[in-house]
Structure formats: structure tokens, C-alpha cells
Amino acid sequence: MSFLDQLNAWLAEPNRWSWTDKAGVPYRTLEHLRFSLLALAIAALLTIPAALWLAHYRRGAFLASSAVNIGRAIPSFGLIILFWFLASRWELDTTFWPLLLALVALAMPPLFTNTYAGVVTLEQETVDAARGTGFREWQIMLRLELPLASPVILAGARVAFLQLIATVAIGAIVNDGGGLGRYIVDGFAVGAQGYGAIFAGGLAAVVLALLCDGAFALITRAATPRGLALQNARRD
């Protein structure tokens, strides 16, 4: 059977477009997004408040720079295997926790560094003016620094989320999850007869990443304060 025949046969399977069957592309796409969004949300809760506080008081510069290097050095597959091994030893659910913990660990460095950088690069005169008008420190952080740094923070979230989309697919190697990566792993398992599934799974993951990237661009544009957006437009 030729590659095109394999691909057509794979696409034509009756359960391929099911929202409830594990073989369905919609089902696996939602699974892919669910893991990615959950990991991003947990990583944001763990890093953004801490980075915002440290940046406001100009502390933790070494921690921020270290997070950059750690984020570049962490091997995605190695993390998944490590957490899978630990979950197996502790008799935890290996179909969920290893992949989720690995994803959270991967998303934390860009979120932390971008939040920190977004706050410390703000003009100090603006912060001092807010303090002079009677704003308390927590009000400055939440009402001034966080909104003004939001484009940089969202840029970090964008990088982190695309990395998560790519990494979720690897998770199919160690469990039944893995979203769209399940098709790639299953395709390799059957050898030459699985080229159609491998191509379809890879293409679906790429399309999903491009759509998510476009969605983050729109979110960033909508979340950027109007005055800051006009200022950036004038600079351009």
C-alpha cells in the first residue's frame, strides 16, 4: 500500500473524526490542548506572582538569569521519563502526572524570566509617580506594573505554550495520552504501514501549534493597554 493509500485509509476510518472516541482527531486535539492549558495555568500561578514581587523590589536578578539557562538546558523527554519513573515508584497515575509535571517544569522558566524582565524594564519615573499619588506597593504591582508588563509576560506565555504543544506529543511514548502525538507513536509501532498515521499526526500537531500561535498574537494585542499600544505604534 502506497503512502497516499495509507493516508486516505487512515483519514477514512469511521471513528477518525469522533469527539468521544480515542481514535478521533477532535478527541486527541482536545486532549492535547487540555494538557497544555492546564500546565500553562499551573506554571503561571507558580511563577508570575513570585516574579512580579521580586521584580518590584528589584530582587532575584540571579534567579531570573538562572531560569533562562535552566529553561534552555532542560531536556523535555528526559523530564517525562524522570517523572514517569518517580510516579511508578510512588504508585501514582502514570497516565497523567508524569506528563503534567514535566510540562509545568518546562513552562516555568520563560514565564518567570519574562515577567521579571517586563517589570524591571519599566520606567522608574512612572512607578515613582504612582507611589507619589498615594498608591500602595501592592496597588502599584497589580494596577501599574502588571498591566504595563503584560505584553512581555504574554510573549513568555506564548513561547511556553508552543513548547508545551510540542512536548505533549512526546508524552505519548510513556502513556496512552499524548494528544496528537498518539498517532505518531502508534504509526512507528506498526512500521512501514504506519507512515500515513505518522504524517497525519505530525501535520495535525503543526497546524495546532500555528493556530495557537495566532491565537496568542490576538490575545496579546487585546490585552495590551491602549496607551502602551499607541506608544509602541509610534515607535514603529
Rank of each mutant, 00 (worst) to 15 (best):
S76C: 10
R34H: 15
L45E: 06
L38C: 14
L142G: 12
E145Y: 05
G178S: 07
S150P: 09
L228A: 08
L218D: 07
W17H: 11
D213F: 05
W19H: 11
Q6D: 06
W10L: 12
L86Y: 06
F77N: 10
V68T: 13
Q124I: 15
Q6R: 06
A43N: 05
P49C: 07
E13P: 06
A155N: 13
E145A: 08
S150H: 06
R158P: 07
I198A: 04
F83Q: 00
T224Y: 02
A223Y: 03
G178Y: 01
Y195C: 09
D93H: 09
R34N: 15
Y57T: 14
L37T: 13
L154G: 01
F62N: 11
L218I: 12
F188A: 10
A166M: 06
F62K: 11
T29C: 13
L63E: 03
H56W: 09
L100E: 04
F112M: 06
F188T: 08
I170Y: 05
R182K: 12
G194V: 03
G196M: 00
V159D: 05
R131N: 09
D176L: 13
S66K: 08
H56D: 10
L46E: 05
I198C: 02
V206L: 14
A55P: 01
A73V: 14
L92H: 07
L99R: 04
H32M: 04
L82R: 01
L218W: 12
A160W: 00
A200Y: 02
P14A: 13
L40P: 04
M1P: 14
R131K: 11
W17R: 10
Q231S: 15
L142D: 07
A67D: 02
I70Y: 02
I165F: 02
L228M: 10
F135A: 15
G181C: 03
L4V: 12
T126N: 10
G78E: 01
I74H: 01
D176I: 12
E137H: 13
G132I: 07
T113G: 10
L106A: 02
L180M: 07
L230W: 13
T29E: 09
F188M: 12
A73M: 12
T94L: 09
T220L: 08
I70A: 03
L45H: 07
V127C: 09
L208Y: 02
Y27E: 00
A129I: 09
P151F: 01
F216S: 03
A172N: 03
T167S: 08
R34A: 15
A192L: 14
V185G: 00
W53D: 12
A9Q: 15
E125P: 07
G187V: 00
T94W: 05
Y183N: 03
P110Q: 08
I70N: 00
W84C: 12
L210C: 13
L208I: 04
G214K: 03
G227T: 12
